[in-house]
Structure formats: C-alpha cells, structure tokens
Amino acid sequence: MAQIYKIYINEVILILTESLPPKIEDYQELKVSDFDFFSFYKLISNHQSPKTFLLLTKDFKSVFNHIKRSMILIKAAGGIVSNEANKYLFIFRNGKWDLPKGKIEKGENSRVAAVREVQEECGIRIDSCRDKVCNTYHIYEMNGAMVIKKTAWYWMRAIKQKKLVPQLEEGITDARWLSAGNLMLVRQNTYPLIRDLINVIG
C-alpha cells in the first residue's frame, strides 16, 4: 500500500505520496516542479464542494515537512467512541456533524487529552481508551496566520451512559449515538476529514 500524507483544507484534500493510492478516482494531479503550497492555498480557497488533489513525488515526506514547518502547529486529540449497543458518538457543532476532539493542554499526552475532550464535549464517562486510529492534519487560517492542526484519534468505549450533554459553550448543540449502518445523516453534512475517518466504522 502506498504511503501517503493527507492534508485537509475545508472541502479540499491534498494527498502527498510517491505512488498512486488504490481506490482513488476523482482527483486532479499537481505538478511537483512548480508546486508552492501558499499559491495552491489561494487557488483552492473558494472551493465549496469536495475536491481531491494529488501530488506524486518520491520526496513527499520532505514536501510535507516543509509545509508543516511553515505554519503554526496545534496539537489536538479526539475519539471514535462506541457504546454497548455498538453505536457511535457524534456531535453537531457549528452547523456540521463532527467527532468530539479538542486541543491538547500543556503537560498532557494525546491519549489523556482525547479522553478529557470527549468527556467534556459530550458529558459522558469514557470507560476505556484503546488503540490509536490515526493522526490527521487540517490546515486553516487563524487571526491572519496559517495553522496546521495535528489530531490524534483513538478508539474509545463508553458503557451505560444515560444522557449525552453537549457542551454548548463550544458550539455543540447536539450529541447522538448512531449505528454504523445509519451514518448517512453524518456523511451528508460533515467535513471530508470526518467522512474519511468514519470509513473505518463502516
């Protein structure tokens, strides 16, 4: 399987890799010779519909590290949480379905931060935090500066939670348990990053 870095920029996915990934169909290939991330960012800043761009190069790790070093790095963590009914926890934040996550605080490791954020955002108790699912990278602007957010995602389990309490002060207006076969509601109104993440659910 091809090694890849996926960078999410709102509705756009930028894939950096040395060989064509399997099961990729609708994409636009970029030329390595004249690739500049900030020019690319300006080009795609008005994209309102999902779009995938592919940058094929043997030096894809170097390109990724160059992009990362040129921005402010924010570290975050979150969870894909299941319950005893094998349903999964989703939140509705700022008009879109999302997974619970948040910034890592000083002195925390990513696993501790992931559990804390899920518990705070949904008003539940996490019974177990298991293997890491993956890291994701999301680029956005904040106060005129470019930020790359690295989020560590973990599998979690929460048993016998009677009530979900969405954290309103964080813009979360709803929290729900949804079955793996009933995720169309989420897929129709979420971010490409979350859409890719829930592919591991089903």
Results as ranks from 00 to 15, higher is better:
Met1Pro: 05
Met1Asp: 03
Ala2Gly: 03
Gln3Lys: 13
Lys6Ser: 11
Lys6Glu: 12
Ile7Asn: 05
Tyr8His: 08
Ile9Arg: 03
Asn10Ser: 14
Ile13Ser: 08
Ile15Leu: 08
Ile15Asn: 05
Leu16Cys: 12
Thr17Leu: 06
Ser19Ala: 11
Ser19Thr: 09
Leu20Thr: 10
Leu20Phe: 15
Pro22Gly: 06
Lys23Met: 13
Ile24Gly: 10
Glu25Met: 12
Asp26Trp: 06
Tyr27Asn: 06
Tyr27Met: 09
Tyr27His: 12
Glu29Met: 14
Leu30Lys: 14
Val32Ile: 15
Ser33Asp: 13
Phe35Asp: 07
Asp36Gln: 14
Phe37Asp: 08
Phe37Ser: 08
Phe37Arg: 10
Phe38Glu: 13
Ser39Arg: 14
Asn46Ser: 14
His47Tyr: 11
Gln48Asn: 12
Gln48Ile: 07
Lys51Glu: 12
Leu54Arg: 11
Leu55Ile: 15
Leu56Pro: 04
Thr57Asp: 12
Asp59Lys: 15
Asp59Ile: 07
Lys61Met: 12
Lys61Gly: 11
Phe64Tyr: 15
Asn65Glu: 15
His66Ala: 15
Ile67Arg: 05
Lys68Leu: 10
Arg69Gln: 15
Met71Ala: 05
Ile72Leu: 09
Leu73Val: 05
Ile74Leu: 09
Gly78Asn: 02
Val81Glu: 00
Ser82Asp: 06
Asn83Tyr: 00
Glu84Val: 00
Ala85Pro: 00
Asn86Glu: 13
Asn86Asp: 12
Phe90Ser: 02
Ile91Glu: 03
Arg93Tyr: 02
Arg93His: 11
Asn94Ala: 14
Gly95Arg: 07
Lys96Gly: 05
Lys96Asp: 06
Leu99Asp: 03
Lys101Ile: 00
Ile104Phe: 00
Ile104Met: 08
Glu105Pro: 02
Asn109Leu: 04
Asn109Met: 06
Asn109Asp: 15
Arg111Asn: 06
Ala113Cys: 07
Ala114Arg: 01
Ala114Asn: 01
Val115Glu: 07
Val115Arg: 11
Val115Phe: 01
Val115Asn: 02
Glu120His: 05
Glu121Lys: 12
Cys122Gly: 02
Arg125Val: 07
Ile126Tyr: 01
Asp127Ala: 01
Ser128Lys: 10
Ser128Cys: 01
Ser128Trp: 01
Lys132Val: 10
Thr136Ala: 03
Tyr137Ile: 00
Tyr137Gly: 02
His138Tyr: 13
Tyr140Ser: 09
Tyr140Ala: 04
Glu141Tyr: 05
Asn143His: 10
Gly144Thr: 04
Ala145Trp: 02
Thr151Met: 00
Thr151Gly: 02
Thr151Glu: 01
Trp153Met: 03
Trp153Arg: 00
Trp153His: 03
Met156His: 01
Met156Ile: 00
Arg157Asp: 03
Ile159Met: 09
Ile159Asn: 10
Lys160Leu: 07
Lys160Ser: 11
Lys162Gln: 11
Lys162Arg: 12
Lys163Met: 10
Leu164Tyr: 04
Leu164Gly: 01
Val165Asp: 08
Pro166Gly: 09
Leu168Glu: 13
Glu169Tyr: 04
Thr173His: 09
Ala180Gln: 07
Gly181Glu: 05
Asn182His: 09
Leu183Ile: 13
Val186Leu: 07
Leu193Arg: 13
Ile194Gly: 09
Leu197Asn: 12
Ile198Asn: 13
Ile198Cys: 13
Asn199Val: 11
Asn199Cys: 14
Val200His: 14
Val200Arg: 15
Gly202Arg: 12
